[in-house]
Simulated scan of single mutants.
Amino acid sequence: MKTLILAALAATTLGGAAIAQEVRLGTEGAYAPWNFMGDDGEVDGFEIELGNELCERAGLSCTWVVNEWDTIIPNLVAGNYDAIIAGMSITDERMQTIDFSDNYYPPDPSKFAQAAGADINYDDLSGIRIGVQGATIQAAYAEQNFGENNTILSYETADQSVADLSAGNVDVVLADGGYLAPIVDGSGGALEFAGPDVMIGGGVGIGLRKDDDEIEAKFNEAIASMKADGSLNELITEWFDPPNTFPEE
């Protein structure tokens, strides 16, 4: 009897009822509309909906882990979760440490936000306090291009940089346009975009450990299917105003 039971269990595992692979998704939970903590204390946002859909299409059983931004890559490498879905731009520097899936959000212009009517010469920034979120592509860009003649103030979260902009403690914030747009629009005219758009990075993708080729392939297939059927653009349009969608195939 025991032999028959074991054989039945083996057949079930090898058949269509196989247990889905468990994957832990790391996110920041502090970067609306990409990812944030909802009123119920659970993570919410564009990437949460996206990640759940990608996992369903890829046949993965996924759970979410919230991690502070500045240690999000080290904790991936350490094995505390299996993938990063946290508005992370694909860059050559990051790819020295981790791999990325195909992008699930096109390259997004970074923008400068300032107090409405502020007299700032963006052709020759000098003596300006520039707020950025630490360990971001904007932080690296600001240090490289403006660090010599300006003060770069790095914050743990992007929301903190915007709060200091509103309080007058920084003159300018440089961040993703998709993050800043609803903040500027909702400021009642207190904040405005100014200066040139800055294109940095190759779009936003899922961060993965170098040796996780199987998970990467599954996510890439799921992303491709969402691009092909238009559901990815629909999700982007739902969460971003204005939406930055992929060209129609």
Rank of each mutant, 00 (worst) to 15 (best):
P182H: 00
M88S: 12
A140M: 06
G41K: 07
G201K: 01
L60N: 06
D213T: 15
D241V: 00
A58R: 09
I215N: 11
F146M: 00
S187W: 07
P74G: 00
M88A: 08
I48R: 13
N52R: 15
I5T: 08
E234W: 00
K210A: 13
T12R: 15
L76P: 04
N80V: 05
I183Y: 11
A78V: 02
P247I: 02
A175Y: 08
A175R: 05
I206L: 06
S231M: 02
D70F: 09
G127L: 06
I98D: 03
A167S: 11
C55N: 12
M226A: 04
F112K: 00
Y179F: 14
S89T: 12
A83S: 09
G41S: 11
D197K: 04
Y105N: 13
N233D: 01
G16W: 13
D124F: 14
G45A: 05
P243Y: 01
V172E: 04
P247L: 11
S166K: 10
M1G: 14
N121R: 03
A18Y: 12
I137D: 07
D211Y: 08
V198R: 08
I120L: 12
V43F: 03
V204Y: 03
D44C: 13
L125C: 05
V23P: 07
A86D: 02
P243G: 03
L4Y: 10
N103A: 12
R209C: 08
P182R: 01
F36A: 06
N220G: 11
P247Y: 03
N220M: 10
D108I: 13
K227H: 09
A78G: 02
T136L: 05
A175G: 06
A222H: 03
I5P: 04
E143D: 09
D241G: 02
L235N: 02
E238V: 06
D213G: 09
E93V: 08
G131M: 07
I90D: 01
D229C: 04
E53Y: 09
D229T: 13
M1C: 14
E22K: 15
A222K: 02
G59W: 10
K111C: 05
N244A: 13
E42R: 14
V43R: 07
L54G: 05
I48D: 01
E221P: 00
T12P: 11
G201P: 01
P242L: 06
F112I: 05
I206T: 09
D102M: 10
D102F: 10
A32M: 03
I206M: 07
Q138R: 05
P33S: 05
A163R: 12
V43A: 12
E56R: 14
G38S: 11
E156T: 08
D185W: 10
L125W: 01
I5C: 09
A86C: 06
A181R: 03
V170A: 04
D119A: 14
G205D: 07
R24H: 10
E214G: 05
G26A: 10
E192M: 10
M37V: 15
A78D: 14
N103S: 13
G205L: 02
G168S: 08
E93N: 08
L76Q: 00
